[in-house]
Simulated scan of single mutants.
Amino acid sequence: MDKLQTPHSAYHWAGETDRFFEGWYYRVTLPEINQTFAFMYSIDDPAGGTAYSGGAAQILGPDDRYFWRTFPKVKGFWADYQRLGLGHWQKRPLGSFPRQLTPNQFNQQIEEGYQATATLNQGKLHDPTTGETVSWEYEIQPIYGWGDPNRPQKATAGWLSFLPLFEPGWQILIAHGRATGYIQWQGKTYQFTNAPAYSEKNWGRAFPAKWFWLNCNAFIDEPDLALTAGGGRREVLGLGEEVALICFHYQGKFYEFVPWHAEVSWEIQPWGEWKMTAIGAELKAEIVGQTDREGTLLRAPTETGLEFCCRDTMQGQVDLKLSNRSGEMIFEASSQNCGLEVGGIPWSGSWRNSS
């Protein structure tokens, strides 16, 4: 996995006491039943002592059903400063300190919590209000990080993301992988082998005003295709700018349409339709995401902690086209297992722009 480890995979918090958050997203798709599980982990103000200090785990399950659990004690959280690795325990076993455990140790010693790395996602949560319990354990075989798999991996926001200029930061960790294991959800056990897997993260001290996102790595008859696209309004040295990208991996190659070497334009409705076009030096990419589902409200980081400020579905329709600039089609693909999201300040009418 080391050769596929992306920049920014490690934990970013450096011990400051000012406002800070870091969040991680893991997903596994089960195309044969047209369902997806998305796991969202987060930590706010890890130094402790503020109204927002603490962690959370959210799960978006089959048919976009929602589960969440808070972890008020920041001292139950751990994260790796060298590579992708994190976890949070609701209660600490006597004489122990939060750290990565083997899957067997975790199952035997931890009553409630989670742990996740580049090759594992494991946890068990219990909602005392409803009595619902969720547990999961699956191994991940990474296929694509972010970039050409035979070269050093790339920062999603480019080399300037290594400087404290952009807030928040965003990094795709595993654009495409294969997951094997199980998820127990609402009294049913889902077992899977080599299911499409994905992970990303964000972090920072400022929070996006609004954003949109499309992601899919379960295309019909295209098991090696993985798409991530999105955009938003972020801060650069305290000033706002709107940016977007379309990127995908396909048959061992990375196709990157980003503002520093392509023109990316978009037209996003408040909900229901996502249209993006990117024109590079030689190629043109077009994607259209659509859904007639209502979507599910999720919590996302804000200046006042996690708030219901984004809407998602994991059962969106997406169509992707790649052509040369003269219009000759190179390939096209579609899926009904696309993740679609809008977030931040609600907007009325279509959001149109280019970067």
Rank of each mutant, 00 (worst) to 15 (best):
L340D: 09
A229Q: 11
G177W: 04
Y52F: 13
D2G: 10
V134R: 03
G327W: 11
G177F: 12
C309W: 02
A47F: 03
Q35G: 00
F21P: 05
T313H: 10
Q58Y: 07
G252H: 08
Q122R: 04
W89C: 08
A281P: 01
K321A: 04
V74P: 03
Y182E: 06
A333C: 04
E139Q: 12
F67H: 05
W170G: 03
F39G: 08
N217L: 00
V288L: 15
S135N: 13
Q100C: 04
Y198K: 08
F192G: 00
S265L: 01
D224S: 15
T50E: 04
F308W: 02
Q141T: 15
E307F: 13
L94P: 02
P346W: 03
Y52N: 14
F192W: 00
L245F: 10
W136E: 01
F192R: 07
N194I: 00
R352L: 10
Q5F: 04
A38R: 01
G187M: 03
D45V: 11
G145F: 09
G289C: 13
V28N: 05
W159Q: 02
W136G: 12
N202I: 06
D2I: 09
G240Y: 12
Q191D: 08
N202K: 04
P46K: 11
T6A: 11
E132Q: 06
M329T: 15
C338E: 08
F162H: 15
Q315A: 14
G344M: 00
P223Y: 04
A179Y: 04
F192H: 08
T70S: 14
W260C: 06
W13C: 01
D63A: 11
L120C: 04
A209P: 07
F39S: 07
T6C: 15
E235N: 07
G147T: 15
T193I: 14
P128R: 05
L125T: 06
E303K: 09
Q82W: 13
R325P: 00
Y25W: 10
Q58G: 02
P62A: 10
E307N: 11
S354W: 12
E332F: 10
A197E: 01
T119Y: 02
E286Y: 06
W274L: 07
E341Y: 00
R325T: 00
E111L: 06
R205Q: 06
R325D: 07
F71G: 00
S199V: 02
M314E: 14
Y138S: 06
Q315L: 14
S335A: 06
G327N: 10
G327R: 12
K91G: 09
W68K: 07
T313S: 10
F331Q: 13
T296I: 07
E267A: 10
